[in-house]
Write a protein that binds this DNA or RNA. Structure first.
Lengths: 213, 213
DNA sequence: CGCTAATCTAGAACAAGTTTCAGACTTGAT
DNA sequence: ATCAAGTCTGAAACTTGTTCTAGATTAGCG
């Protein structure tokens, strides 16, 4: 029988279908790797996360690093999952105060944006990885997307959204990601991102089953 | 005095401030390079565009290729500029037929989307490069963005848009790029992209100075 | 305990983007 | 026609992501 179970995509909750539980030491390794990844990313962004350095930093052989995360993009997307969970927890504690759903969503996203501004390099690494990811990372990217959707729906305060509302949420996510990229690459100001977020959030009112179209 | 002028960012119109004109042979080299890039990209997407192969394919030394395009991302973004010009020309010939501005924009974007579907690998290479570009490529990416904006404004049929309308256009572009990415990475269907585009285009009506909010 | 299969480690090796360099070639000016 | 300065070429070198290998370790089972 195997000694330590096969290591694969890890996820927050019960999403993973067949992920054998990790040993304590394995869980610890995984943590060390993610911590090193975030640390290096915080310094110099995407480029500063070098696999050899991550391995050394987390006291793990390069081959092992690749066993846990099959590519740099996988690693950074996993790092993002990790950070997103934090974020969601933090956001839950102080629900947004806006009157309308649109206001609350915009407020929540701006709060998240401010958090990202505190670690712009880390944001750079995570977002670039997310948009650069190819099909082999789809499951992980999808998980990030679901988590983001959950955060937005939370802010809207909706139990069961209509299809139109889900469309609006998807568009908001698109805008969120793309606006972040333009900000990170210095092509848009913080103010600009704020405007874009507020603009797209008006779509929510438009799809409100009571008042919208 | 210099023999052949310094090669730098090239742009469609008068945007470049100080780009000495290229020799005929230089212009020809540049063309060959872009053609090779598009050709390789059409085959296997981003990964298939290998600088050594582009150089060989376009009968240019590797060092020369790097003189014309300082990185793979620069090259692919330039390739996108090139393709966008084609596209804009093509789109101009058959203006969209929709009643409202929103309909016309959605129609135009869907037409562009269909064109991309014909060369999904090329689309992959260009879009991935665009979103992966860091600050050093900002001017070129910005040029692509301006060109895209021009296409959308064309479709709206607007001479001088209001700030609110420009915001809407920016959000539409965000959605357009991000939706393309989700499609390219297999996380969204063509139908899904269509819905997202149509959804975000409703923002236009919302900002119409006559009828909107 | 002692086995056995899987995991982990160290390090070499490979791949593709990027840089560098010496020498041949072009260009525009004199 | 000649020259100086800038370009192009071919090839090697360097960087960093990724793969591979042989041997040491570890985990669970009988």
């Amino acid at each position: 029988m195997p000694a330590e179970a096969k290591v694969e995509a890890r996820s927050a909750r019960s999403a993973a279908p067949a992920t054998p539980p990790l040993t304590e030491r394995q869980e610890a390794r995984r943590r060390r790797i993610l911590r090193a990844s975030a640390q290096l990313a915080s310094r110099g962004g995407f480029d500063a996360v070098q696999m050899r350095e991550v391995a050394e930093s987390s006291q793990v052989a390069l081959g092992t690093l690749y066993r846990y995360f099959p590519s740099k993009v996988h690693l950074l997307v996993a790092t993002m999952q990790d950070q997103l969970e934090h974020m969601h927890g933090t956001l839950r504690k102080k629900p947004p105060s806006g009157e309308t759903a649109a206001e609350r969503v915009a407020e929540t996203l701006m709060r998240a944006f401010r958090a990202l501004q505190r670690e712009p390099h880390l944001a750079d690494a995570m977002v670039r990885a997310l948009t650069f990811a190819d099909r082999s990372v789809s499951p992980e990217v999808d998980q990030v997307s679901r988590q983001t959707t959950a955060i937005i729906l939370d802010a809207m305060g909706l139990a069961d959204p209509t299809p139109a509302q889900l469309s609006a949420v998807r568009v908001i996510e698109h805008t969120w990601h793309s606006a972040l990229i333009t900000w990170l690459s210095g092509r848009a100001s913080i103010a600009q991102v704020k405007i874009d977020i507020e603009t797209v959030c008006r779509l929510i009112d438009l799809t409100d089953p009571d008042t919208g179209a």
